[in-house]
Amino acid sequence: MAPPQDETLANIRKYAAEARELQDDPMDFDASRTEARLEQTVRELQARVQEQQAALEKLRAASSIDVEKAAYASEDPREKLRQLLAVKNAYTRLTSTAPFLPSQGSVLPALLAARTLKENIQGTKDAVSSTQEQVAKTEAALRNEETNLHDAHLIAQAMEKRIQRLRAQHEDRSQKTPAQLAKELIATKRAQKEGYDEEMKQLGGALNDFINDYLSAMLAAEELGGPVVGDMLDVETDTLAAGFTKKGKVKSTKKPVSDKTRQRRIDQIWGDKAAIDEEEEPLTEAEAADNEMRQLIENLFATLTGPGGGRAYYELDRDSAASRFLVRAKIAQFHPKDARKLRLVDFGRELDD
């Protein structure tokens, strides 16, 4: 009698040889044969189900025990013990019973394997998608944290430089007398004032050029019933002389408008702001609008720096395109209850407070 180990090795070698033969054999792609095997497998499963149903009905007919009641443990200890013994006996009998296996030509194992593979593949795809989303979120969070870290480093460097400057200033001041510090402070303030004055001159020149080259013509066009400032960027002198229709379009006149008609219209709109001496040439519409804008800005500045400060309003003579433009540009603001009162927006007032 061969020892058990030799018999086990022989079985392993036999199984390996059979598996190699099956692997070397070409796969059967005969559709008719596969369909026949599927039908046979279905019939076997149906027969097995019918057999199990018949056995269950026979058991129910032969037994007087309520199945639904027996499915739960009884509260009576003796009854519960009998239930446990019955379950133990059932497991003992079923252990020695050979399990149901499909026939040799059945495709049920292949179907079960295919279903398991499909579930595994789908689960893997879902896991990959979920992992990709988590990776994307993690990368976005990482980039955000890197940006925050970079900003923190810049802030730390700026704070260190600021601390070094303050320490140097403190050391420098500690070595000087109060009189020297006062002189340096006065010199610094004077230099700042000179710088501010120079910058104001440059900004004033830029404002004058802007009003003279661009804004005055657009203001005149709006006053004459034309488009709002900004809608027509290039406004010619001939366009202003011709005027605009009620719909805001340029009038097309075959004959040039006389100077008297233009002067009368200018006087009606701008009034004494456009008044001139007899020896001077008459003002154009753009020049009249230019004068009104400059005078309005001067009056607003005078009101801002006057006794009332930033809370005082300048009272307008009329509702003009210049005042509306300053309000639209967020440079000035009307009184909440009186649209004839206007004041400049004091941008530094909140910082001073």
Rank of each mutant, 00 (worst) to 15 (best):
M27V: 11
F244S: 00
R349V: 08
L203V: 05
D234H: 09
D352C: 09
L56C: 10
R43M: 13
N144W: 11
I12D: 08
L166C: 13
V327Y: 02
P109H: 03
E145R: 10
K249E: 14
E21G: 06
R328I: 07
A10T: 07
K189Y: 08
E57L: 12
L111Q: 11
A98L: 08
L56I: 05
T261M: 14
D346Q: 04
L101P: 00
A114H: 14
E222M: 01
T97K: 10
E298G: 06
M200C: 06
R340N: 03
P282M: 06
A158S: 12
D277V: 09
P336H: 07
V327C: 06
E236M: 13
I186A: 15
D234N: 15
D197P: 01
D209N: 11
K249V: 08
E51V: 08
A274F: 01
G123S: 14
D24M: 05
G309I: 09
A62H: 05
V87L: 14
A187Q: 09
H153L: 13
E298P: 01
L296S: 00
R33A: 13
S64Y: 12
A187C: 10
A187F: 06
T97N: 14
S63F: 06
E298V: 07
D126N: 15
D151E: 12
K189S: 11
T138A: 15
T188M: 12
Q157P: 01
A2V: 12
E18L: 11
F301M: 13
K337H: 12
K330F: 07
Y15V: 09
S320C: 04
V228E: 02
L344K: 03
P4I: 05
P336Q: 05
V257G: 02
A286F: 01
Y196G: 02
D319A: 11
A47G: 08
R143A: 15
T305F: 10
F325M: 03
H150D: 15
I163G: 10
N144F: 10
S320Q: 00
Q202R: 12
T147P: 01
K341M: 10
A71K: 04
K193P: 01
Q164F: 08
E278L: 11
L283E: 00
S106E: 03
D238E: 15
K255M: 12
A10Q: 09
A114S: 15
L38K: 00
L142V: 11
L142K: 11
R318M: 10
L185G: 05
K341Y: 03
V128A: 14
P26M: 05
V229E: 01
T138C: 12
A321F: 01
G204D: 04
Q175E: 10
A312V: 04
D290C: 06
P26G: 04
E287Y: 01
T261E: 14
L142A: 12
A31S: 13
L185C: 07
V235D: 00
